[in-house]
């Protein structure tokens, strides 16, 4: 019975994901495509939960659907011109070639997936024992956190570099020509509603608690720097939308410091381990947990601030009521 329900659920989920993806591509209105893409992200979060990947479900809901959706919608606000589909329909040959390309890509992808799934699994309790012993040596109980910050710490280090590059690149584009109206994102319009103050007052402390909890729980369960950073970034988006944070043309020294902090602390930890005669980011026994914790705190802040700045579309942000406010 339970298994059957699971299959029905997975089938419905599969159908919804594929239909939503098709509508995202096919819809005539850009706004509809963006909203459906956000819905697609939320269903992906359910798919991650079904695939026993709670870390990803959390990250997808906060980043994939939340932050990406906010970025897309704020871009849509600025680019309202919905290009009409070009007057003449594409030539039949062109259309067929596109469909052929898509089918080929999907086919190659499916074959690749089939090949991946038929790779032999290291079976037996011995393999599991071995993996658990390795994870235990890192000082954290959660396998995904152990992989992110110890076994494959390089990935995470370089990822922070990519995030920083994205911010710098976006900033270069903004600096070249700032938006015409200063505070274009503020939803208050010509006056605040009492609801906004109540919501911000209730949610802000709660979001900070949740982010701190997610960061802490990452040591032994689903959570960690990414999810905590994304939740904090969501708070930044909320404050930016309600005019509690205003854009600045330049970032102060503090914000620049926070932007590079994750990368700097991570690299420093790597150099320290090298200085004591170990490999880059090979933590000494017993010190792994405190080092990972310090790095994770730095990462959380250095993930949250770039995402807020990217949403804000400005080089810096400052506290304060928007100039529109009564």
């Amino acid at each position: 019975m339970g298994e059957l329900v699971g299959w029905v659920f997975d089938g419905l989920l599969a159908l919804s994901l594929v239909l939503l993806a098709a509508r995202v591509v096919a819809s005539a209105r850009l706004f509809e495509s963006i909203v459906l893409f956000i819905v697609f992200g939320l269903l992906m979060a359910i798919a991650w939960a079904r695939l026993a990947a709670p870390h990803l479900a959390l990250a997808e809901a906060a980043i994939g659907a939340g932050i990406t959706g906010a970025l897309l919608l704020s871009t849509f606000r600025e680019i309202v011109t919905d290009q009409p589909p070009s007057a003449e329909a594409p030539k039949v040959l062109v259309y067929r070639l596109r469909v052929l390309m898509a089918l080929l890509a999907g086919g190659v992808f499916a074959v690749l997936g089939w090949a991946l799934l038929s790779i032999e699994v290291p079976a037996g309790p011995a393999a599991g024992e071995q993996a658990r012993a390795l994870v235990a040596r890192t000082g954290v109980d959660d396998a995904v956190t152990a992989v992110l910050l110890d076994f494959r710490a390089y990935d995470t280090l370089l990822e922070m570099g990519v995030l920083l590059l994205a911010v710098l690149g976006a900033r270069a584009a903004v600096a070249a020509q700032p938006p015409a109206s200063g505070d274009d994102l503020w939803i208050g319009g010509e006056g605040d509603t009492p609801m906004v103050g109540a919501l911000v007052g209730l949610l802000s402390p709660l979001i900070i608690i949740v982010a701190g909890y997610l960061l802490w729980v990452g040591a032994y369960g689903p959570g960690g720097a990414f999810q905590a950073g994304a939740v904090l970034a969501a708070l930044g988006v909320l404050l930016r939308l309600t005019g509690r944070l205003v854009p600045l043309p330049r970032a102060g020294a503090f914000q620049r410091g926070v932007l590079v902090m994750g990368l700097a602390v991570f690299s420093l930890a790597g150099l320290l381990t090298m200085a004591t005669g170990r490999a880059f980011l090979q933590y000494p026994e017993g010190l792994a947990y405190p080092m990972i914790l310090v790095i994770e705190v730095a990462l959380t802040l250095s993930i949250a601030l770039p995402l807020v700045l990217l949403f804000s579309g400005s080089a810096g942000i400052a506290a304060g009521r928007s100039q529109h406010s009564p």
Binding site: A53, I63, L72, V144, V147, V162, A170, L310
Partner: peptide
Amino acid sequence: HAMVLTGIVIAVSATA
């Protein structure tokens, strides 16, 4: 899982 988590953050950076 860890690779996809990294990938999600990279994807949002690239998108932004």
